[in-house]
Design a protein around this nucleic acid. Sequence first.
DNA 1: GCACGGCCTGGGAGCGCTCACGAAATGGTT
DNA 2: AACCATTTCGTGAGCGCTCCCAGGCCGTGC
Lengths: 345, 345
Amino acid sequence: MGERGVVVDNGRRRPTIEDVAAAAGVSRGTVSRVLNGGVNVSPTALAAVNKAIKQTGYVVNTHARSLVTQRSGSVAFILSEPQEKFFEDPNFQVLLRGCTQALAEHDMPLLLSIADSEQDVERVVRFISSGHIDGALLVSTHAGNPVFGRLASLGIPTVACGLPIGYERELAYVAVNEVEGARLATTHLARLGRRRIATVTGPLDLSGGRERLKGYQEGLEQSGLTYDQNLVAHGDYTRISGQLAMERLLKQTPDLDAVFVASDLMALGAMDALDRAGRAVPGDVAVVGFDDSPSAAAARPALTTVRQPWKRICEEMVRLLLALLDGQEPAAVILPGQLVVRETA
Amino acid sequence: MGERGVVVDNGRRRPTIEDVAAAAGVSRGTVSRVLNGGVNVSPTALAAVNKAIKQTGYVVNTHARSLVTQRSGSVAFILSEPQEKFFEDPNFQVLLRGCTQALAEHDMPLLLSIADSEQDVERVVRFISSGHIDGALLVSTHAGNPVFGRLASLGIPTVACGLPIGYERELAYVAVNEVEGARLATTHLARLGRRRIATVTGPLDLSGGRERLKGYQEGLEQSGLTYDQNLVAHGDYTRISGQLAMERLLKQTPDLDAVFVASDLMALGAMDALDRAGRAVPGDVAVVGFDDSPSAAAARPALTTVRQPWKRICEEMVRLLLALLDGQEPAAVILPGQLVVRETA
DNA sequence: GCACGGCCTGGGAGCGCTCACGAAATGGTT
DNA sequence: AACCATTTCGTGAGCGCTCCCAGGCCGTGC
């Protein structure tokens, strides 16, 4: 009937490091060394261990490892936005996907946490401090979001996407130079000969909203055009708000011949309004958006826009987070936006 | 300088169960019992332990726990779709969000895994088998997706969203009765007096695509209408494919007076085409979509559609998964679709 | 020929927890 | 008062891993 430990019950028990060691004819310690980079192990032992790993189908038990290293090897992706935004704004998906991929390259899983209500925030904070994760990637355009403060005071290694207003020192972040991007868009319009360039802004309590407006103003100035309150309307980044803002603009300043819209989604809405009003794009009114979200290229006519380098952003966020985990100080990365000229301007 | 273990270095060490036990004047075991439901512990001890937990700010170390229980307490959300779909189809977001919330209620984190390439699949499978997670929620409309088989043969507790074709016995799943939903849509159109009812289908290699077409046919029959090949065009669930399909339909059968489109996104595309062709909706052509995705209600005119009970779907998926983790056999849940009448039909 | 240093290896200790077991306390019976 | 069943509690063992230390081996220099 087989002594226990000799004919071993191989009944679906996951092989442990000990099994590998036995199979390779070395000790636990040596296997562990191989698993962790293989420094100070002889080529012979290394080969034997690798063979044994394959043979036994060994895969490291992360819980045991985490227990001793005090590191989980996974990070949270915290989405802290009202629900509607999450559904509608394609940028969140792009970020989520990009970060998932960037992390996957380091073999780190991503834990998704959504904190869009007071109690959710508490749950997320509790979760974070439970040692489940090593750090956090925080996505919120919302200045004054309480999550920034909680994470900062907890000392959780955190990288924000966009300026974490009020916590620029404590938190690492990667942001796009939105002022410059908006300026690029506006001067492009001016160079096209447009003289009555309007804008649809994002919410001005968000850094993005403010910066894009600032860039618009700078672009105007740089092009010898004057800022006119009647050429400005506000939206909240949703498609419908873009449409409504454009309708207002059309009513209050019928002679506008171009519009810089602070997000692609709103630009799509603005184009709906233009279409309904019988204004040709770009014939009568040229349109430039912001973000270069997937729908920009798909739009008809295809939307000229300011590209945010999403892939790069995600990679930098992950890089910054790894640096933080490595004990380095919080750093900031500012990436340039880039004008993508398509059909609407 | 303080004996080690007496003046203890309280320098930011996370409190352990032992610390709580000391603070409460009980033993490790009792604290553990409280942590795990508090059976067989006296009210006095329970109160003392709870107080001590609060006092010390104790939070359980999940790695240590998982090491002994062999359970991680987290599940993977596997998204196995080509990239474009992920970006464009709002249903994925709805599912992701819904599952995150449903899991959060059980205090289980969700790990996001995206497997849209061959190598991604391998990575994800490796990850899954590494013991990081207890089970998986699998979202893929793609029949014949290799992930189904891998998960099934690995014996990972898995719940699929939609029929896991070929693995209906091995895997649990929750699906919507799409045949019935499509039938509902079609008979609704017929009851409205429409006689030339067209359809834009989804991809027919997907169960959803086939079922919705079947429901359309049944609805036609039930209404005394005959199936006509010229009233059928195929799309791939993207908005643009809906537009193109509609254009084809309009060309080959100009006298159509209604259309059942197999997804809201395609319905939106179809409405673009109708708009361009100068056909009024619903005046000239009535439109019914499928899914009731967020954009359906937001569309102008608002889209009549077949609602998939997303929240319910997510809850059932999580329920089924928990049952699986509890040792129960894979089960299937079929939920009814529901017609939501808005403006387009 | 011997001492010394550099590689490589084995194995003890321990991370923080749960679980099983047996001891202790409790309370109800005869 | 003695006994047994039941509840409550404490403790040893051990989950699978990494870290560290002691010791073995080899080559080099004197």
